[in-house]
Design a protein around this nucleic acid. Structure first.
Length: 323
DNA sequence: CATCAGGGCCCTG
DNA sequence: CAGGGCCCTGAT
C-alpha cells in the first residue's frame, strides 16, 4: 500500500528569524504527541511538507543562538525546484515556524516575574509553532478529541498508513500528509475501520470543505482573533476546545486564553496553586495579569514542566498524562 | 466478565 | 442551555 518516495534533489537556504528565537523550544514541543512525519534532535529537525502538489523533506539546523538566530534549511524534493516555487515556499516556511512575530516584549516584561522569571531564563524565545498546514492541523486536533495520548497517536498513524506516502531523504524515512482530495475519495466506513470512531464523519466533511475550497488558510491568517474563531467554529467537528488550540498554535494569538481542557486544568492546578483541582475560572483569573500575553504565559509554564519531565521523574504528572 | 469514564462535539427538546 | 449519544480503550 505505502509507497516510499526518494527525495534526491536538494536546495539550501539560510534564514534569520526575529530574535529572540529559541530553536529547540520551537521545533520541539514536549507536550505534543509524537508523529511519524517529523523528528527532532537537539539543534536539528526534520519534517515533511506538502506544497503545491509536491512532497518535500525539510531539514532545519541551528546555526545561531536565541539572541542571534540563524537557521540552515535543506529542502529535499523529487524534482528540481524552480526559482518561482522557492519564492512561494520560503514565506510559507517562515509562517509555519513563526520566524517573524515579535515576542521580545513578553520576554522583557516578565523576566523577573515570580513564576515566569525562571522559566523565561530557560526558554526565552519560545513561540507557538504551527509546523503543519491548516488542514493537517485540524486532522490532528480531531484525533485529540475525547481520547488519551496513546489513542490519538494510534488514530493518526492509522490514517498515515492508509493515506500517506513515505518519504525518504537525508537517511530518514518519514510520513507525509495526504491531500484532502485523497481522503474525500474514501468513505466514512473506510475511515471507521481505522478506529477513528465518530470522528470519521468529521474527517469526511472536513476533506470536502477543503476540496471545495471553502476554507482559505491564507485569508484566515489576515483576520482578527474573533473572526478566525467565528470561521473555525463553523467547521463541523470543530468546537471551543479545538479553537482554543488553533488560535494560539496556528494563528499565533498570544493572548487567546479562554478555555482550559480537563487535563490541563489538573496539571495547572498543581503547578500554580499546588492543589489537586481548582476551577478553570480561578486559573483563567490568574493569567489575567499577563495582559495580551495570557496564552503565551500559559505556554511557557506548560512546556517547561514537560521539558523537565524528560530528565526528572515527576510522579503526580505521570498520573495525569496517561500515555 | 461487565461497566465506565475519558485531552469534545453535535443534536435534540 | 442542559443532557444524551457517540467510538474506542484501558482501568476497575
Amino acid at each position: 500500500m505505502v509507497k516510499t518516495l526518494a527525495l534526491n534533489e536538494k536546495k539550501s537556504i539560510v534564514l534569520e528569524p526575529k530574535a529572540p528565537y529559541n530553536f529547540d523550544a520551537n521545533f520541539h514541543k514536549p507536550s505534543h504527541f509524537p508523529s511519524s512525519d517529523n523528528i527532532w534532535e537537539k539543534g536539528k529537525y526534520w519534517i515533511t511538507m506538502l506544497w503545491e502538489g509536491q512532497e518535500l523533506g525539510l531539514k532545519f539546523e541551528n546555526k545561531g543562538t536565541t539572541n542571534k538566530p540563524k537557521i540552515k534549511i535543506n529542502i529535499y524534493s523529487q524534482k528540481i525546484l524552480s526559482k518561482q516555487f522557492m519564492e512561494n515556499l520560503i514565506p510559507e516556511i517562515k509562517w509555519r515556524f513563526n520566524f517573524d512575530s515579535d515576542i521580545s516584549g513578553f520576554c522583557d516584561k516578565y523576566k523577573n516575574d515570580k513564576i515566569l522569571g525562571k522559566i523565561i531564563k530557560k526558554w526565552k524565545g519560545m513561540k507557538p509553532i504551527a509546523a503543519n498546514s491548516l488542514y493537517e492541523t485540524l486532522i490532528i486536533y480531531i484525533v485529540l478529541q475525547n481520547a488519551a495520548v496513546r489513542r490519538s497517536v494510534q488514530m493518526l498513524e492509522n490514517l498515515f498508513k492508509k493515506f500517506d506516502k513515505k518519504v525518504k531523504y537525508d537517511n530518514k524515512v518519514l510520513s507525509a500528509f495526504w491531500e484532502p482530495e485523497k481522503m474525500a475519495k474514501s468513505s466514512e466506513q473506510e475511515l471507521r475501520d481505522l478506529k477513528v470512531g465518530y470522528r470519521a464523519k468529521f474527517f469526511m466533511r472536513l476533506a470536502e470543505q477543503f476540496v471545495n475550497k471553502e476554507i482559505d488558510e491564507f485569508a484566515l491568517r489576515k483576520m482578527s482573533k474573533d473572526e478566525v474563531k467565528e470561521e473555525m467554529l463553523k467547521l463541523y467537528g470543530i468546537g471551543p476546545a479545538s479553537v482554543e488550540y488553533l488560535l494560539f498554535e496556528d494563528f499565533y494569538f498570544c493572548g487567546a486564553l479562554e478555555t482550559i481542557p480537563p487535563w490541563e486544568q489538573k496539571i495547572m492546578s498543581k503547578l500554580i496553586f499546588n492543589e489537586k483541582l481548582v476551577s478553570t475560572k480561578k486559573i483563567l483569573d490568574f493569567f489575567k495579569k499577563f495582559k495580551g500575553w495570557e496564552k503565551l504565559a500559559f505556554h511557557y509554564i506548560w512546556e517547561d514542566i514537560f521539558w523537565r519531565r524528560k530528565h526528572e521523574h515527576i510522579e503526580w504528572l505521570e498520573k495525569e498524562i496517561r500515555l
